[in-house]
Nucleic acid binder design. Structure first.
Lengths: 221, 221
DNA sequence: TGCAAAACGATAGTATTACTATTATTTTTG
DNA sequence: CAAAAATAATAGTAATACTATCGTTTTGCA
């Protein structure tokens, strides 16, 4: 059996949704609803209706909507980390790896059959549309201690290490990749909704080119 | 009289808060409360208590909390645009202007005595902590039509034009400055709250250096 | 196989929020 | 000074984000 496990901090749920049918239904339908309605208009009541259960059923897995969104976004980063590790094995130079990483950040993922309860493309759209909301709160310091942002930090660290292989003297590797990862999301959003904040006419390829250009030029001596 | 006017799209208020005492009190106290409590925990009831008026008083100026935040953030961009225009007059090369622009984006502003009802530093903190919330909604397309994001787009356009003076062939000027402006905010937030996503140890100078480095390297041929 | 524990479903209830509506009073202005 | 505009005061509503309780079903395991 070709299992695949994305590990997520136990602080991000009350009961692990990955271990039960109901939990998986919650994940599946939350992604679809969040994609359709947006974070603000999603309620546990609506999720309950979709999974053919009750509000208290959802509360048994997640303390609130914020925790649910944080779980989903961490799942996405964990998933991306796995994809990157797989692809990096086939590549040799750190340049190639960085380029591929940026493509993975921006280009649409294909559905993985091993995880039928997660629609990766819909989740990617949710990340683009909602990701800063998980840390732009007054609770950020407390939640950071509890590991709410480990996924993001892990990806950033991995890419920073690659960058230092290209230029060991580059002084801002974490800032660079926090910026690249953010831009990967926001440029997708801008290209679609606020086109004067982007030079992409909607194609993801142009965003990839922009980000690769910015990354490699930044790493020059 | 040394007046100073930041113009803001009339779609961003029901009644212009700049024209009355009550309106100015709303602006002043909203900034302080938003800084203190954060967007999520701010309510019009709390604002009403601070301005020694009533909820309906606040509703007469702003349709809702989202519109109020959008107003404040547009005010900030308009203000920054004015500051930049002033400073650019004293500078000659586009490099110098870009560097100064980035400093203005990141370094704390000094209080302007001509506008006593706006605490620029507090407003800057509000922008850092809340700015993506104004466009990360399902209403973004409609609100974009109504001019909710003109301030942001205007700054981005101004800096793009400067960039093209340095390198007329650079293909991504809007993406570059949307990214730089976002990073200017998010790096401040990360340096304070999620330090592993930044290489700044809290000092804004390091963020400025990072952003200037990224900008100038990106514009090289 | 049987029983205790866990999970689930159903329902009810509460405090808060984000408004809307109405009316009386005060202030401004031509 | 009269009319209009702005403000204050109060009430009310639908929705939200939970919390609590309890009976039923499912599950694990002795």
């Amino acid at each position: 059996m070709n299992a695949l496990n994305i590990t997520i901090s136990a602080k991000l749920y009350s009961k692990n949704p990955d271990e039960t049918e109901l939990g998986k239904r919650i994940l599946s339908k939350s992604i679809a609803l969040m994609d359709e309605l947006g974070y603000e208009h999603l309620t546990f009541k609506k999720v309950a209706r979709e999974i053919i259960s009750t509000e208290s059923g959802v509360y048994r897995y997640f303390q609130n909507k914020h925790q649910l969104l944080t779980y989903l976004i961490n799942w996405y980063w964990g998933w991306l980390e796995v994809k990157m590790a797989q692809e990096f094995m086939l590549l040799n130079s750190p340049e190639e790896k960085l380029k591929r990483a940026i493509e993975l950040l921006v280009l649409p993922m294909e559905q993985d059959e091993r995880i039928p309860h997660v629609d990766e493309r819909a989740l990617q759209r949710v990340v683009v549309a909602e990701y800063p909301k998980i840390y732009l709160t007054k609770d950020v310091d407390q939640e950071n201690k509890e590991g709410y942002f480990l996924g993001y930090k892990q990806i950033c660290e991995t890419l920073s290490q690659l960058a230092l292989q290209i230029n060991p003297d580059y002084p801002y590797p974490h800032s660079l990749f926090a910026t690249i990862i953010e831009a990967a999301q926001s440029q997708q959003f801008f290209a679609e909704h606020l086109p004067r904040l982007s030079d992409s006419s909607g194609g993801q390829k142009e965003i990839v080119q922009f980000l690769i250009d910015m990354t490699l030029k930044s790493l020059r001596k």
